[in-house]
Every structure is written in C-alpha cells, then in structure tokens.
Design a protein around this nucleic acid. Structure first.
Lengths: 256, 256
DNA sequence: CTTGACCCTCACGCAAGGTGAGGGCCTATC
DNA sequence: GATAGGCCCTCACCTTGCGTGAGGGTCAAG
C-alpha cells in the first residue's frame, strides 16, 4: 500500500468534515479501504478518487443515494447522468424565476398599481350581457332557474355602488392569483388552489344573493366554457386561463 | 362567533393537510381560536386569514420560523419582507444557473473537446521564460535557491515528452476547475477548494522534481502575483483568477 | 346502538449531516 | 514510564416540514 489516510487527513484534503466521512461509511457510499484492530478507518488512493467523484456530483445537489447508484453501476455514462441532472436543475431554476416574477407582481400590486387595472378590466362587466347568460342557464336547467335569476338580479341591484366595486376588486384578486398559479404550472387539480376557489365560490354566492352550492359551482364552469364573453375575458387575462379555471372549479367541486 | 372550522374543514379550504395544521399548532405558528373539552381544535375567520398569509410566504420557500417572526411583529412591512426574500431567491436561481453552465462545460469536456484546448494553452509554456522566474526567485530567496532551480531543470528535462504533455493536461484540469469555482463565487478560503489545491501542489512537486512544501507553495503564490506572464495567463483563462488562485494557495497552505 | 367519519396524542421516519458525550489510542515530552 | 494533547471510535439526539401510521376517544346518522 502506498499511502493510507486517516479520516482527518482525507477530510482535510477533500474539504469535507470527519462526520461526513463517517456518514458516507454508514450509508455505504464510501467505505474505508481497511479498518484497523482499533476500528480506525484507513482510506487509500481509490477511495480518495471515489470521494472526488462523489463530491463532484454532490455539488450539483444530487442525492447521495443517486450518486451511489451511479458510481456503483459499472460502466455508467457520466454524460447522460449529467444531462439528466442538468434538466432537474433547469427546472428548479425556472421555478425560482417564476417565484421571483410573482413576487415582483405582488410588490407592484401592494404598491397600489392594481386598482386601476381592476377598474379597467371589471367595470360594468357582469351586468352588461347578463341577458345572454340567463338564456343559457334557463335552457339548460329549465324554468326553475328563472326564479333564481330574478333573485340574483334583485340581490345585485340592492348592493351599493361601493360594495359592487369591492366585489369586483375581490374577483380581480382571485383571478390574478389563479392566473399566477397557471403561469407557475401548478396543476388545476392541486389542493393549493382550494383557498382561491373557495373565495371564488363565496364571491359567486355574493353576486347571486344566496350561497353557491358545489353543484351550481361546477355548472358555472360549463357556462364559462360555453360563452365567448367569459372565454375572451379570461384569455385576455392569461392565455389558457379559461380551461384552467373551469378544470379547477370542477376538481374543487368534486373534491370538497 | 360566526363560523368555527374543524381541522379537516380548514385544511380542505386552504389546500393543506390536517397534519400541517397540527404541526403549525405545535410550533405555535397557527393556534386554534379555541379548543373544546374533547381537545378538538376550532378555527375562526381570523385564523383562516392568518393561514392564508402563512401559505403565501411559504410558497416562496420562506422558513416557518421566519414567517412567524414576520406575522407576529405587528405593523411589519410586507413589501420589504418580500424584497428581501426576493433577493434570496434570486441568489438561488443564479446559483442554479451557474451549476448548469458548469455542467454544460463539463459535458463538453467529457466529449473530448478539451484536449486541443489544453494543448493550445499550455504547450511550451513553462520552459519559455523560465529564466525570468529564476532571477526573481534568487533575488528573493538568496543563492540557496539556485541549487533548487538547477534540480528543477534537470528533473523537468529528464521527463519524456509524453509525460510533459500529461503534466500540462493535469494543470489544465486543475486550473479549469478553479476557474469554475471562481465563476461560482466560491470563496478562495473555502475548504472545498482543498482537493484542487492538493493536486496543484502535487503538480508543482512533479515539476520541481521534489515535494513542494507548504511554505514553498505559499511563496509560489507570490511569484504568480508578481510576474505579468503568470498574471496574463490566468487572467486570459478567467478574469480575476490570478488573485483567486493565489489567495486560495495561501489560505490552503495556512490551513493544512 | 352500531357504523363510519372524524378527532386526538404520541412517536418514528425522511436527508445530510452538526454537535456533543463518553471513552479508547497514540505518541511526544518531561 | 507517566502524563498531556490530539486524534480516533461509537452512540445518540438535533435540525426542517411535515408523512404516515398506531392506538384510542367522539360525534352524527341510520
């Protein structure tokens, strides 16, 4: 044997701690070349080299288990392993960039620039072509729907202008949040959307003047899908939002 | 009280698990509005709101402890908190991008494009202006140095051409690795540089025909710093590498 | 009065080590 | 040849943010 290194020596040379070497021994990632009577660990050239490889992959945030699997499969393809890991890193980097963008937008909103935007997008919207939606609802759900619609109109009309604006702001808030989730590629079925859908359903209830049942909520999703007005509005907010929102609404209704 | 929510209800509405709420209760991040005789947890409006805030910050990878500190400091500045966290995220994203670039370069190198590069940069280098370095060394360290230099030249001359090229490739490897560390903003004093400095010192020993002591190694750093040839070469490899390498060499010599 | 859905409190597990505690080994110096 | 200091060992608990049971009480509906 040319040179036997103790834990401390190998640790110093390699820039890790003794505990790390103990750990790697424990999990079988890097075993000493031999172990003395006194249970001292001794490492040789080969172990030093293996440790270099381990640290190389570890740098990139690879899991120790994955590294072990790589190194212990003889004749493994470094290039492919790296490429695969590269993809994971890219995904993480992208995720961080998304989060940063979201933070930026949130900061802007907190700074109050959002109010105009909301007024812009939402003023007058829900009253304008109400008639068409009513027709569709009645067609689909029969005459019993007519009473509901009448109730709804009375409820809406009875609200003060301030309250109406407040509701529109709430809607803007919710839809903005969902649009961001979409941009972040959060699944429409994800549980984390629930809080926003809950708020959305409550909002619908407010507009209708009576609570929105889960069934009705799922049905509303179909209305959104079927009417170009809604579709156009959502797509203007964020491409793909129509399908995203309606899927989320149905998933939510089915889940709760 | 308007509405009391059970754990399950709050969990479903908010898109988290029951266990998460238990956990938040345990660590004091979100306590129930009140607790029944039967130890059931009941949450109110206020808790729902607080949970929304918690989840908002959690999304960005903020630690629960930090979130608690934020929310429990009354009159805290959301915008500033977000800005600070944004900076952290940006740093992480940047780190990932660096790693990705490093992987890309590594893949390129593994694909064999490095050989030319090495030959390009290193052929003939150490013999060319050897004379000047010698003068400097003698000036600084006195006549005793002359013998060392003579030894060194003999040692170098006695090596085969193949062996010389091999040594140059090793040097290229080490310097490339250090340049990458520099690009990744790893501190020159960091322990993780040790393996490369170890190899570098061994390389110097090979060139000299005798082991390079830690003292000599630290002295060599000064040579690199003082001579424009070295400086130019390192800066061509990566801007700032001269200072980085020499700092690392000295830190390493002092540490081991 | 039973069933099933919900609630509770432990308590272990994960990844990758950090940080001692308590005790043996080695070697240099007095 | 004894003692000091430095290195080595093996437990074994701590960290983050929960997941995942185990074992047992509670509640509303049929």
């Amino acid at each position: 044997m040319s040179k036997e290194l103790t834990v401390k020596q190998l640790a110093t040379i390699s820039g890790v701690t003794v505990r790390t070497l103990h750990h790697y021994d424990e999990i079988g990632l890097l075993k000493p070349a031999n172990v003395g009577e006194n249970r001292y660990r001794y490492y040789g050239e080969a172990e030093l080299l293996r440790l270099q490889q381990i640290l190389f992959y570890r740098e990139f945030g690879m899991q120790l288990g994955a590294i072990a699997a790589l190194l212990d499969r003889p004749g493994f393809d470094h290039v492919r392993a790296l490429s695969e890991h590269r993809a994971k890193l890219a995904a993480k980097a992208e995720r961080y960039r998304q989060l940063i963008r979201t933070i930026d937008r949130t900061i802007d909103r907190l700074n109050g620039e959002q109010l105009m935007n909301a007024n812009d997008l939402y003023k007058g919207f829900p009253l304008e072509r109400q008639v068409d939606y009513e027709k569709w609802l009645v067609e689909r759900h029969g005459d019993a729907m007519k009473d509901h619609i009448a109730d709804s109109k009375r409820a809406l009309a009875s609200l003060s202008g301030d309250r109406q604006r407040q509701l529109m702001t709430e809607l803007a808030d919710i839809e903005c949040a969902l649009a961001e989730k979409l941009r972040e590629r959060v699944s429409a079925e994800a549980g984390e959307l629930a809080p926003f859908l809950e708020r959305h359903r409550a909002w619908v209830g407010e507009m209708w003047g009576r609570p929105c049942s889960l069934q009705a909520y799922a049905g509303l999703a179909d209305l959104y899908l079927s009417h170009p007005d809604f579709r156009a509005r959502y797509e203007r907010l964020e491409p793909g939002l129509t399908g995203y929102l309606t899927s989320a609404m149905k998933a939510y209704a089915a889940r709760v």
